[in-house]
Design a binder for these strands. Structure first.
Lengths: 115, 115
DNA sequence: AAGTTGCACAACCAAAAGGTTACATTTAAA
DNA sequence: TTTAAATGTAACCTTTTGGTTGTGCAACTT
């Protein structure tokens, strides 16, 4: 089975889990308690997230705390990077501006040809 | 069936299709010709991308040109935004810096507390 | 007009995804 | 030392996913 970051965040439950533990680590039952689905189902999502490196688990007695490793999301951000020029938020445009400064100096018409 | 941007980009073939047509629109057969899998399989991926709004199709005679609508990816970028503080690329840090300028003026120690 | 090209889609299939219940195990608490 | 809590996991089920082959039709070419 595929097991990468893109696939991991494709599921809304998994995105919610990540959001839930982004502030502070939570144990398995606490995470599961916040969903309608069974503990086992949530556990499977946690397992997938762990296998993708988006979660690290730390044992405390009989409890296991799930800690988000959101650096892993940089992989997705990097992929998006190349396409940012296709939409516009103020900050995104700033990035593009900074990246293009050099090439614009070489060829002032380039942006008009490409965008 | 779920049909959102996150699910759309979860598949590597679909990401490759987006990349392929990001430069210029291509017709169905041209896209399909770049993959090992059948034309029908590629067509299904194109259909999913269309249903998600990541592609617009324009008819020219008997050919249909698939045009990438990458603005749709902003949805994913927006979701990532909240987590950017967890990793560091130079530009990402620039964003955070610019966003925090105002509050830093109010409280010079804030960045040290948070990051 | 006849043939060819480009595309949509039905029908089918195997595997993966997402869920369930039931049971086993480890560790804390009474 | 029983009992209860927290977790792991096996076995099973249904739906979705990603793929196939085959058919049909519309629109260019010759």
């Amino acid at each position: 089975m595929r097991r990468d970051t893109f696939q991991a965040i494709a599921d809304p439950t998994r995105r919610e889990i990540l959001n839930m533990i982004s502030a502070q680590p939570l144990n398995v039952n606490t995470v599961a308690g916040n969903f309608e689905i069974s503990r086992t189902a949530v556990y499977k999502h946690l397992k997938i997230l762990t296998e993708c490196g988006l979660i690290k688990v730390k044992q405390h007695g009989r409890e296991r705390y799930c800690e988000a490793r959101l650096e892993k999301l940089a992989e997705v951000a990097d992929w998006l990077e190349q396409y940012k020029k296709f939409w516009n938020s103020k900050l995104d445009n700033l990035e593009i501006y900074l990246k293009d400064i050099q090439s614009e100096e070489d060829n002032n018409d380039r942006r008009h040809q490409r965008y």
